[in-house]
Design a binder for these strands. Structure first.
Length: 823
RNA sequence: GCCGGGGUGGCGGAAUUGGCAGACGCACGGGACUUAAAAUCCCGCGAUCCUUACCGAUCGUACCGGUUCGACCCCGGUCCCCGGCACCA
């Protein structure tokens, strides 16, 4: 009797059924409200890991629930299929990257299907397919035509292991995000996208993203790093060029006692050329070159500098101050030069101490503990201006405005805004990416390939050495081109695009995946956008999510879509851990989804992963926990089958006994709680499942009573199957069929709950004395504060408890509790 | 250093946001069924104390203090863990 359900047969049966009947096919339908749920598409490594299972289970539950709620649901899947691993496979094993990738995609698609995910596979996209990268190239050209793509020679981040450049976003702790190799600098001519043009909008619109975790918005805000300040022009003695500096504290201008330039500053060479300082300066710069970026930017690195023998004049008071170069001033922020105010900046203070430079306080914090004439540390806070000529006595906030206004009037400075965000370096010296569709002509410069010639196909006659330049350069024909403008022989760009471009618009391609004349049709995109719910790992909080927002805004400006933001609601799911550590090969704690599915079935895998923790938290994998989920499904299965055996499909259920009422209550409560768990931004699937478990326990209790009400149990079982079906679809399809239904449970409506059944005749009231629980009592529900007080104070047991005591106060909370304060 | 998030039984986690702390599950213990085991069904399960037992009492949500009739929840301070940013002028 205690036989287990045959999950292998059942899951196969329904997966086939869904595929054969196109159950998950989605069409635009203006008569229905749409819902677009999207999980971040995977890189097709070939093997599913638990993080995937978690990500896609969360999305699938949501998609299935919204479908049952009557929405027209778009739930697509595709492949972020350009990228390094394919190329590394080519270098190591001599396999063609395209073959390697397509094989992996096929394998992974099967694994997804074995999870029972409700994707519309008709809309599948792969970024490495020419039909996709053709439009990627088209988009790049639009960026170029709008002045949002440009080529520039610059020191760039260079990963010596990947042999390619990296975007700032891909350098984490000074190391390559992918291979963890320390990143160096290399002077290269590279393509950039002008994301800085959108910095302010990307920052401002974060406020609109009310469905995003605060944490992610904050991370983006910090990354964009807006700061307000002023650019000030300093004159250098005996040098015709002016020195621009950026400061966020123009109020401290009178306290500037020296200047510091970045060692890479273009003026430095000119300023020391032929002077007695040249040698020392060169040596200093030389020494710095041996430092890696990590060391260079470390806060613990001692500040070191070198006087260059020149003086600048403070434009406000004409004071003559020495100019240094130092390791703590960076060329790529602001203007690459600063005025140093040691009294009010900790870095300048350290530097001044070390080199014995003057410290002039100009902002008085009015703190008796601080002796302004003998500062022990910089005081960067607010205060009143001193030693600042006509600005003395002003609050420093006010002085900031006044000084900026004064400088603007005199033409010696202006208020400016600076961003930490840099333009996005997108060229990669790699093969497996979309070729940048640009052609260099001696006469015309950089010219985009003609639209009718797109896509610029990846050549196949290439060598993979893994060294230096893009493999595209080894093709015998790829580089040859004619200038699209003047027709003269020209050279094609050899670099490919960063794969983060591919993933910056795939969610739009899903809305119109087969369009051959445009990336997507505006009408279709406008019907489906925005993505109502986006789900993925928090590791994309900055990179992908910022780039996708950037693209969406550019598309909006180009008139391609109405949307200005791509993702309405965002869920960042936690990691899957084992024994408290991230699953990884090196730790050897990997649990393979394939093994779990084989042993317990995908329903069990899904159930466990949704039950073990709330989606946004890390989840600790537990083998016994999985076992528990499996047991629960078997428990449901046995019970439902037994109920079917003991009842008829159309029997009318009555609610008469206490057990009946209790079961009815529990059922409605469960429907309510599960429904609530899907409310936007909640995702409390773990508690939703726990309340379903409570319902099952209650059903068992009723079933085991002397006279089980099988018609009511059958009715309850139907509801149970419905609420359980988004979580564990296969077993529910099977039970739904056994309950006598002909169609897929996926097409059923989500059950409503009966508000009245949730109203109980009596409620339990907690009786506290001085805040301590002393007893509980049942009273009729709906009593007012006064009625409750009166009733409880008249209660015999309450009187016993308060006997001989002086009741000073009674607090009553209707339907909940009463607290009697005694002395 | 700055900015976030967090700290609840043996474990994963609940607690409708100020109203019964520990739902649900795992692990563990006990019982039923069985020749036996597994599976299944039922019961128990924060700590300490009292009691033959029932009944009960005290303590308990990282730590210290405060507000309140009442605090896991609010306020002030401390410690620890996780994440992000970091010579950004």
């Amino acid at each position: 009797m205690a036989e287990r359900y045959d999950f292998q047969a059942i899951e196969k049966k329904w997966q086939d059924y869904w595929a054969e009947n196109d159950v998950f096919r989605t069409e635009e339908d203006s008569s229905k409200e749409k819902y677009y749920v999207l999980e971040m598409f995977p890189y097709p490594s070939g093997k599913l890991h638990m993080g995937h299972v978690r990500n896609y289970s969360i999305g699938d539950v949501t998609a299935r629930y919204m479908r049952m709620k009557g929405f027209n649901v778009l739930h697509p899947m595709g492949w972020d299929s350009f990228g390094l691993p394919a190329e590394n496979a080519a270098i190591k094993h001599g396999i063609r990257p395209d073959n390697w990738t397509w094989d992996n995609i096929a394998e992974m698609r099967e694994q997804f299907k074995s999870l029972g995910l409700s994707y519309d596979w008709e809309r599948e996209v792969a970024t490495c397919h020419p039909d996709y990268y053709r439009w990627m190239q088209w988009i790049f050209i639009q960026f170029f035509n709008r002045g949002l793509a440009y080529k520039k020679k610059n020191p760039v981040n260079w990963c010596p292991s990947c042999q390619t450049v990296l975007a700032n976003e891909q350098v984490v702790d000074g190391k390559c995000e992918r291979c963890k190799t320390p990143v160096g600098k290399k002077e290269l001519s590279q393509w950039y996208l002008k994301i800085t043009d959108y910095a302010q909008r990307l920052l401002d619109d974060l406020d609109k993203l009310t469905g995003w975790p605060e944490k992610v918005k904050l991370m983006q805000k910090n990354w964009i790093g807006r700061s307000e300040g002023a650019e000030v022009t300093f004159t250098i003695e005996g040098f015709e060029k002016k020195l621009q500096i950026y400061t966020t504290r123009p109020d401290t201008l009178f306290g500037a006692t020296f200047m510091v330039m970045a060692p890479e500053h273009p003026y430095v060479k000119e300023l020391v050329e032929g002077t007695e300082y040249q040698k020392a300066v060169d040596e200093f710069i030389d020494k710095l070159q041996y430092l890696s970026d990590i060391d260079r930017s470390s806060t613990t690195l001692e500040k070191e500098g070198c006087f260059i023998g020149r003086y600048a004049l403070n434009p406000l008071n004409g004071k003559k101050i020495p100019i240094y170069i130092a390791n703590y001033v960076l060329m790529d922020y602001g203007t690459g030069a600063i005025m140093a105010v040691p009294a009010h900046d900790t870095r300048d203070f350290d530097f001044a101490r070390k080199y014995g430079l003057e410290i002039i306080p100009v902002v008085d914090p009015k703190n008796p503990d601080i002796d302004l004439n003998d500062l022990q540390e910089a005081c960067p806070g607010e205060g009143t201006l001193i030693n600042s000529g006509q600005f003395d006595g002003l609050g420093n906030k006010e002085a900031m405005k006044k000084i900026i206004a004064y400088m603007e009037e005199k033409g010696i400075g202006k208020g400016t805004v600076n961003f930490r965000l840099r333009d996005w370096l997108i060229s990669r010296q790699r093969y497996w990416g979309a070729p940048i569709p640009m052609i260099y002509c001696e006469d015309c410069g950089w010219v985009p390939e003609k639209e009718e010639n797109l896509p610029v196909m990846l050549p196949t006659d290439v060598e993979f050495t893994g060294k230096g330049q893009s493999p595209l350069t080894t093709s015998s024909t790829f580089g040859d081109a004619v200038c699209p403008k003047c027709g003269k022989p020209a050279r094609r760009e050899m670099d490919t695009m960063d794969t983060f471009l591919d993933s910056s618009w795939y969610f739009l391609r899903y809305t119109d995946p087969k369009n051959e004349s445009r990336p997507f049709d505006r009408e279709k995109a406008d019907y489906w956008m925005n993505v109502d719910q986006y789900i993925g790992g928090v590791e994309h909080a900055i990179l992908h999510l910022l780039y996708a927002r950037f693209f969406t805004k550019v598309f909006h400006d180009m008139g391609m879509i109405s949307a200005e933001e791509p993702f309405e609601n965002l869920l960042t799911q936690g990691m899957v851990l084992k024994d408290g550590a991230k699953m990884s090969k090196s730790v050897g704690n990997i649990v393979s989804p394939a093994d779990i599915i084989k042993k317990y079935g995908s329903d069990t895998a899904r159930l466990f992963i949704l039950f073990a923790a709330p989606p946004d938290r890390d989840l600790d994998w537990s083998d016994t926990g999985v076992e528990g989920s499996y047991k629960f499904l078997n428990r449901v299965w046995r019970m439902v089958l037994e109920i079917i055996e003991n009842s008829e499909a159309d029997e009318k259920a009555s609610v008469s006994s206490d057990d009946d009422r209790s079961l009815n209550y529990e059922m409605n409560k469960t429907i309510k709680r599960v429904s609530d768990s899907f409310a936007t931004g909640r995702f409390s699937f773990n508690t939703a499942i726990s309340s379903i478990m409570e319902l099952v326990n209650e059903m068992y209790r009723c079933k085991q009573s002397a006279a089980p009400n099988y018609p009511l149990l059958r009715e309850t079982a139907e509801k149970l199957v419905l609420v359980l079906s988004p979580f564990v679809p296969h077993i529910c399809e099977e039970m739904w069929q056994k309950l006598g239904h002909q169609t897929s449970v996926y097409y059923e409506s989500w059950p409503a709950y009966d508000e009245e059944a949730l109203m109980l005749d009596t409620v339990e009231i907690v009786v506290q004395i001085n805040g301590r629980v002393k007893m509980k009592a049942m009273v009729e529900s709906g009593l007012s504060r006064e009625e409750l007080t009166e009733k409880m104070m008249a209660d015999e047991k309450v009187r016993e408890l308060t006997d001989g005591k002086n009741v000073t106060k009674v607090i009553a909370v209707p339907g909940k509790l009463i607290n009697i304060v005694v002395r």
